[in-house]
Write a protein that binds this DNA or RNA. Sequence first.
DNA 1: ACAGGCGATGTTAGCGATAACACTGCTCCT
DNA 2: AGGAGCAGTGTTATCGCTAACATCGCCTGT
Lengths: 328, 328
Amino acid sequence: MTDVARLAGVSHQTVSRVLNEHPNVREQTRMRVLAAIAELGYRPNRAARALVTGRSQLIGVVSQNSTLYGPASLLAAFEQAAAESGFAVSVGSVSTLDRQSIVAAVERHLDHRVAGIVVIAPVASTNEALEHMPAGVPIVAIDGDPQRPGALVTVDQVAGGRDATRHLLDAGHRTVWHVSGPDGWFDSAGRIEGWRRTLQEAGAEVPPVMAADWSAAAGYRAGQMLARMPEVTAVFAANDHLALGILRALSERGRRVPDDVSIVGFDDVPEAAYFIPPLTTIRPDFDAVARASLTLLLDQLRSGEPAIVRHTIAPTLVQRDSVAAPSA
Amino acid sequence: MTDVARLAGVSHQTVSRVLNEHPNVREQTRMRVLAAIAELGYRPNRAARALVTGRSQLIGVVSQNSTLYGPASLLAAFEQAAAESGFAVSVGSVSTLDRQSIVAAVERHLDHRVAGIVVIAPVASTNEALEHMPAGVPIVAIDGDPQRPGALVTVDQVAGGRDATRHLLDAGHRTVWHVSGPDGWFDSAGRIEGWRRTLQEAGAEVPPVMAADWSAAAGYRAGQMLARMPEVTAVFAANDHLALGILRALSERGRRVPDDVSIVGFDDVPEAAYFIPPLTTIRPDFDAVARASLTLLLDQLRSGEPAIVRHTIAPTLVQRDSVAAPSA
DNA sequence: ACAGGCGATGTTAGCGATAACACTGCTCCT
DNA sequence: AGGAGCAGTGTTATCGCTAACATCGCCTGT
């Protein structure tokens, strides 16, 4: 930086001003500095800047298992959005979502003086951890408790559950069964609620929830039970992988989809269009979630005040071939 | 830090020594400092340390599209391994794998004074970018050019292609068709080579490669052609999603798997066991790749010398139900 | 014509750590 | 007994920036 200043014939502080786009720099001087920067190939040391400002150009993301389709897509989308705004993203995944691990992960990020933190908080314990957070930096929760005070961006799970269920009801089914995600996840709860409410509003019978997790294996197990129950004609699976497992169980027992049983999934994984049959599903807009989170974070950064904003992103129904009218 | 020093009745430098595990600190003093740290809840400012040492406790990962199963799993595994060694991981994904983008991504990481960089470099251009890198920090390539000088960790694609092909040949098929990954990827090339060589060694006819990309959609298209060719009894798909697309195309045309056509995939995605039928596939050990990369990086960090080491991780065959003897 | 103000720049003082060197008692050797 | 050597500690300088204040012209209003 000193070199740049010398070459441009100014003080290092003026170079800093140019770098930070301070208003009070003469255009001509600015040009000279910029030229010197280019000639020397100078790049500012972000560690030094982080030290003096107390903030690095880094956003920390805390999430659990980035191998699940949702979190992975979210992370990728967020990283891209952040890069466009000049921020790098540092990931701090945790093996369990309990409060202590989350707090530890957040603190690790804080040690690096991140500018902000995004926590993918799909369960209650994760969420609680956020309550007791040293509020030095902006924090945004994704997928957190819809009731949570503070910055939150979430997919409208209830609307997704509603749309899936309504779609099946509209096709003529008397009721819809549900294979749910794991207990304790807000995603699961929201989808269940949307499903149940829609059934109740339509005056349809509400079958018991078949609790599973997010895996195809659990879907397969649930599917084996479903396949033995002739009264089941419509199933809403809490995600596409679950749906895949159900599809296979059904096919093994000779129950055809959509002829005998209709199915709707959730996520719209890229492969869903190539399941047998192509899966009708609910597609959450991860890009929108990522962008909204970043905006929220950046706003807090600018204003200095913690935001109490909730963004809810509505998912959309993607129709393919796994839904039909009941045969009877 | 000054507070800690005062509380422990020592100088800040001694605190620093305790933190960095310097040998020349009396046990008693060490204890006193540790106690003070605990009492004050002191946490070192990593930005300051990064400034003075020129290295942050951060490892930069450069990759393209972290939504693909391979890169996503790799990233997750690497992040976990790094966390165990006290490093955070900052991701810098890039939309295209051309040289310029890669160089830019690496430089962004360098600005943050990362301790090391991992580049997931599946194509030649990415790899070239690495040649002309300011070698200030250790760099490890994953999936890069097997001929590349420098630190490289890669899945043994050739072995994977060989195992898949041999498995089909052993089942009694006269030859094996191959639906490949995108042009230019080392992964594709390696799998093709393993497949072709095995066929040649067995004296089997080598059918033309059906070039695709990594998507189920491309697999479906290839599958539609394959389905119309009665002489095709065995297919090796370059990844599981491709295989899924092929499976559907085959099923639509009434060709049964494995009765009429046998299929082997690659990746062992968690859902592969729930395809119809469950997919026999090749499973690369992403964990091992991640750990090996980290080790290589850390070794370079310690020794100060660039490594010229190549690690090759052998994948394993996972047998399920998509392979059988040919019917004729 | 001159005080006041403002725009453009320079100077100085940290941010919170580590590195390098200086210092103090010991122990140990000859 | 006297100095070399070393373990344990403190002092000072420094990393590369930005914040805060100081400085210097020059324009403006009366």
